[in-house]
Nucleic acid binder design. Structure first.
Length: 327
DNA sequence: AAATAACTCAACCGCAGTAAA
DNA sequence: ATTTACTGCGGTTGAGTTATT
């Protein structure tokens, strides 16, 4: 089982292939009709490379049936759908995309598609809504924590059913809200150097989206003189947060907006649950039956959840879907 | 215009499975 | 039964390119 490195492989060239090397490899395989033994190919073809390097160069780059260029929207959808069922089985996924190599798909996934899912608040590993968004999902509960609808954001909080002094209840709830947002802000701060592999990048995006769409100008919450030096919105719930009455007004005006976004996050969690607890083989069997069902379901259900009547989900492209739903 | 950061992707590495000796 | 060779796969790297400051 243990494969020892070949003695002959020492001193062989590594790194990028030259056009001359490419031509030698192409000429040899075309002349032979097949690559034959990869191990012996380099010596016969006059290449100072190991067989493994030759095989990789051929299968990932020189093979005549390789489709080059950008991935189409259909290919993207198919990759996402296949990945949700098969995971990182790149070679298996590549069999469903003629002309695309497993390496190319893997690279495209890591550099592009993962980001797309992150932007949607979906974990690219599990294809489910990220679990730390549970915090956000509880937001509506906080907003309507008493029998009165939206009691927290209702300016009539003085009618507290708890029998507590109005300002006490009000302060307590605001503090909960403040703590919640501070936790999220703290999490987002880790992603300052945004990278595709940064696990917190999505948190930053989600939070920024929430804040940018629902927070009032900073001065609404703070009368401190140095507030203008802070990024708009980003510190509204920080230490300078001192005017609950203004917050009530803000929350009342934006509760619908916040609820819609949270509803979307909640629904995105349910989208692909049906594919759980199914073996890889079973999942593969599903592929041919409905190759884009997951992504279609995703857009349809999210649109339903948000009740955006101005969107036509049947004609919605993948990009449009992301743009319109998320941003 | 230069420096720096971020991104892309071809290529490499190590492991695992299998066939052959 | 054990060892060795070969192939394929998935994770990772780093040089080159592009974007940003």
């Amino acid at each position: 089982m243990v494969r020892s490195p070949s003695r002959e492989e020492t001193g062989l060239k590594k790194g990028p292939w030259t056009p001359e090397e490419d031509q030698k490899l192409i000429d040899y395989i075309q002349k032979q009709g097949s690559h034959g033994s990869w191990r012996h190919l380099p010596r016969i073809a006059g290449l100072n490379r190991c067989g493994k390097s030759c095989r990789l160069r051929w299968t990932n780059y020189l093979r005549p049936d390789i489709k080059r260029g950008k991935f189409s929207e259909e290919e993207e959808k198919l990759i996402i759908n296949l990945h949700s069922m098969l995971g990182n089985k790149w070679s298996l996924i590549s069999t469903k995309l003629p002309g695309r190599t497993d390496n190319e798909i893997k690279n495209y996934w890591n550099t592009h598609l993962k980001k797309k899912l992150l932007l949607m608040g979906i974990d690219p590993v599990t294809h489910r809504r990220r679990t730390d968004l549970e915090l956000l999902a509880n937001f509506p509960k906080l907003l309507s924590s008493s029998s009165n609808s939206c009691s927290l954001i209702n300016p009539l909080m003085e009618n507290s059913t708890l029998g507590l002094p109005t300002d006490t209840v009000q302060l307590a709830r605001i503090q909960i809200m403040q703590a919640l947002l501070q936790v999220l802000l703290k999490a987002s701060s880790f992603s300052s150097s945004s990278s595709s592999s940064n696990p917190n990048a999505y948190s930053n995006l989600v939070l920024n989206n929430l804040l940018s769409s629902s927070l009032p100008p900073l001065q609404t919450f703070s009368d401190s003189s140095n507030s203008s030096s802070l990024p708009p919105g980003t510190s509204a719930f920080g230490e300078s947060f001192q005017t609950p009455t203004s917050y009530q007004d803000f929350a009342a005006q934006n509760s619908e907006n916040i609820s819609k976004q949270l509803l979307f996050y909640s629904n995105s969690n349910n989208m692909l649950e049906s594919s759980e607890n199914i073996s890889v083989d079973q999942k593969q069997d599903q592929i041919d039956l409905n190759e884009t069902s997951a992504t279609k379901s995703m857009s349809t259900r999210s649109l339903d959840a948000l009740n955006l009547s101005d969107l036509d989900d049947s004609d919605l492209s993948w990009k449009d879907f992301l743009d319109q739903i998320y941003w």
